[in-house]
Computed example of a mutant assay.
Amino acid sequence: MEKTNNSSVSRRQFLGAAATLVSGSVLASSPVFGAPAIIKNLLGPNSLINGVQIGVITYSFREMPDQSAEAILQYVLETGISAIELMGDPAEIYAGKPKSTVDMRSVFPLMRKRNEKQELTDEEKKKLEDAEAQMKSYNQEVAKWRQSASMSKFEELGKIYKKAGVKIYGFKPNAFGRNNSDAEIEFGMRAAKALGANQVTLEHPANDEHTLKLGNIAQKVGVKVGYHGHEQQTYTFWDTALAQSPANALNLDFGHFVAAGNPNPLDIIKQKHDRIVSMHIKDRQTPAHGKGNVVWGQGDTPIADALKLIRDNKYKFPATIELEYKVPEGSTPVAEVKKCLEYCKNALS
């Protein structure tokens, strides 16, 4: 596809390509019309494997230069994945949100280090503090934009993804924090519905009053709230939030759960399956082995067993690929996500 000067796919090109992808005329002139398997591939990706929906989170493509909604869709299509947990910026910028000057690609690793209680250097601390100060000012500008933003552009984007064969099942905007107003929270949840998602996801706020508020607003809007965790996850981590509202749920991170040292990690899926709305999968080591994020199959996370558990028990939540290990030299995030999908296919075959 032709690129514009700002490295984003041209809106006109994008809309045209999406329409062509689902056009009946493409198939009508094709000599393979009538061959179901081939037609299925022509119509788009399919990562529903033996009843298990494999998805991907936008964060997996964080090292790619173009972070627009249009580019994200192209990355997902290249991987062959048919479902996504979409983070906030691509969709909100598509809908007209002011753009931030903060390079989140350089900030994300520092935030992850802090979340995992790793020591930051003085230079890293300063960089993170400066970025967060800029983000605070920017968030005030965004809050003002959200007061009058229309849902129509979110609906448009959801339809484009759907027509291309990619279901948006989760939405993760920066709208659900304790500093966000009730109006912003409701905006983020309504945007999720407009995109076609049945859930919003966020880091667990570690505040009972706030999870109660989020659950109540989610119930009103008609979506679920999936709370994500890192190494603070335990078997009882979500219990208060789950008791507060039927809309509160788990966005379980299975890799972090293993790195936290929890015994018998498959049991969290068995125990909480009816309240899990989505599950992140990655391969991490146990504390005894260093807690590393590693290439799938080299760590201690029983990814294959977890996927089989979902398949055999017909659990309905998607398993979301989250690429966190270092991309090998000469490869790309898109290529590595494809390898992760192949791992899932092999596990479920």
Rank of each mutant, 00 (worst) to 15 (best):
I303G: 00
D208S: 13
K338I: 03
R275W: 05
I310L: 00
N139D: 12
N251A: 13
E141A: 15
A91S: 06
Y325C: 08
S100A: 08
E203S: 13
T301S: 11
S106V: 13
V294P: 05
V102D: 02
K282H: 08
N115D: 14
T236L: 05
A306H: 05
P263L: 10
Q285I: 02
G188K: 04
V166T: 08
P333C: 02
G261N: 11
A243C: 04
K117R: 14
V277L: 04
V295A: 12
K3R: 15
V76R: 03
T58V: 01
D239R: 05
E155I: 05
Q134P: 00
Y94G: 01
D312M: 01
N179I: 11
Q74I: 09
K97S: 13
I310K: 00
T301A: 12
T4N: 10
I81T: 02
A175L: 08
L27W: 09
L341A: 04
I38Y: 11
I160F: 00
D312C: 02
I185V: 14
N180G: 01
M135A: 13
G290T: 07
L27K: 12
M104P: 00
K163G: 05
N174L: 14
K308F: 00
N251D: 10
D130Y: 07
K308M: 08
E124Q: 14
K339C: 06
K40W: 01
K339H: 11
Q285Y: 03
D300K: 04
P287K: 01
E141R: 15
A247N: 07
D253M: 01
L86M: 15
F154V: 03
A304Y: 02
K117M: 07
A143F: 05
L266W: 04
A304I: 06
A243R: 15
A288T: 09
K162V: 00
S29W: 10
N174K: 09
R62H: 14
A149S: 13
Q67M: 11
Y59H: 10
I321T: 04
L73C: 06
K314D: 03
A71E: 10
M64Y: 01
N216Q: 13
H210I: 07
A304S: 14
L157F: 01
K163C: 09
G330E: 04
A197G: 07
H230Y: 12
F61I: 03
G261R: 03
G16D: 12
A260T: 09
S25R: 10
Y161C: 03
S30T: 13
A18F: 01
Q219K: 15
R275V: 15
N180S: 14
D89A: 15
I57R: 00
R146C: 06
G226N: 03
Q13L: 15
Q53D: 06
S68E: 06
A69V: 08
V295C: 07
N216M: 15
S30Q: 13
E70A: 14
G188H: 02
N313A: 03
K224E: 10
E85T: 09
